[in-house]
Simulated scan of single mutants.
Amino acid sequence: MARPSYRIGLMFSTTGPYSTVASAMLNGALLAVSEIGEAGPVELMPVVVDPGGDLSRYTALSGQLLAEGVRHVVGCYTSSSRKEVIPCFEKHDGILWYPSHYEGFESADNVVYTGAAPNQHILPLIDYLMSTFGDRAFCVGSNYIWAWENSRILRETVTARGGTVVAERYLPVGETDLRKLVDAVIEARPSFVFSSLIGISGLAFLSALRHACLARGIDQPGTMPVASCNLSEPDLDELEPEARDGHISSSVYFSALRNPVNDAFVSRHAAAYPSAPLTSADAEASYIAVKLLAGALAEAGTDEILAVKAAVARQRLAAPQGDVWVDAETMHLHLTPRIGRSRGTEFDIIREEPAPIRPDPYLVRSSPTDSWFASAPRLRVAK
């Protein structure tokens, strides 16, 4: 008996200013499609589109996919692209499966969020940074909602704990002339730098700051580390070797995780994409999105969105990061927060939760003064 077959959209900007991470996301999604094709309950036929990082093309391509009968699209990396296309999915009765960590404060009826919410990445990161490095933060970011909202959350949390945000600077997506920004950071000498720069801007900043500090005899990783919620293994692969080590990243997945599911994921990814960088949180979130979508389609027996949303709320997946499942109230996932420190092209996991935590996209259950690592040690130090 033939398996049910469904067309799905995969919409990632594999060209443009953040093509490195978007290519990793597409690889993760296609790997899941391949595995489902070999032994899954349904067959998925992917329709791949590339907006090239152009917001107007996200809307046009979403409309094109939905007009052609595709009801489910896995895609978007930036929050600006997600917000740009949501009205299109609402109008044409489709679901966007959004596989990226994001700033929260959203729970759209036509979106399933498979990346981390703010209580699963930025709050644990702030707690770690302030308890380890100090209470003076310098925020840098790409000039759009991801950076604005993350810096706001950081500012409110740091000040509630008695710390200070010494400065905030925002640059256009794709900007690489960062000399003035680097000089401002070094002059301020913060306890840590919080970076929400994406794509080539983030890489240029890490390189420029490292070189400027080396020229001045400053131990930048030890005295003024750069911390982020979006730095991943493919980014490290793009960095020059002398700028790779010592960056702090908060995520729910790192390729260095050791468990049977992730070992198999890393191995299959390497076999499928031998020239690609290591697996990353973005690749895993895309992989998870496709797996959950396939499970929901199989249970629902249709790609009609209300039936699929009801079914996905009952899905549980043994993912590479560990067990994940959907919070039916918000359509976000229960995920496991982790902190990593970069070394070469991967991360050493230095802290992690012992179990997944419930998503809190509006931070209504999370206080700025919650302790993640000290007086309430729910996290263990990873060896």
Rank of each mutant, 00 (worst) to 15 (best):
V70G: 01
I145C: 07
G40E: 03
R169L: 09
L154I: 14
A243S: 15
L154P: 06
R316S: 15
D54F: 04
P320C: 12
S255H: 03
L335T: 11
E106I: 05
G217W: 08
L236I: 03
V266K: 04
I288E: 11
V33Q: 08
S80Q: 11
I248S: 02
N119L: 07
S191K: 02
P359Y: 01
Y128L: 11
G199V: 00
A382P: 00
E168N: 09
S131H: 15
Y128T: 13
M224F: 09
S201H: 02
V185N: 06
G322M: 04
K383W: 03
Y170E: 13
D50I: 05
P260E: 09
V49G: 00
Y98D: 13
R136E: 14
S100L: 09
A204I: 07
N262T: 07
T336D: 04
L26I: 06
E304V: 07
M224I: 14
I305T: 13
P368L: 10
G202E: 00
G40T: 02
A283Y: 04
T15K: 06
W325S: 15
P221G: 07
D219A: 12
E352F: 01
G94C: 10
S232Q: 09
A307V: 08
S62Y: 01
L30I: 02
R136V: 15
A289N: 10
A147C: 11
N230G: 10
S267W: 03
E168G: 12
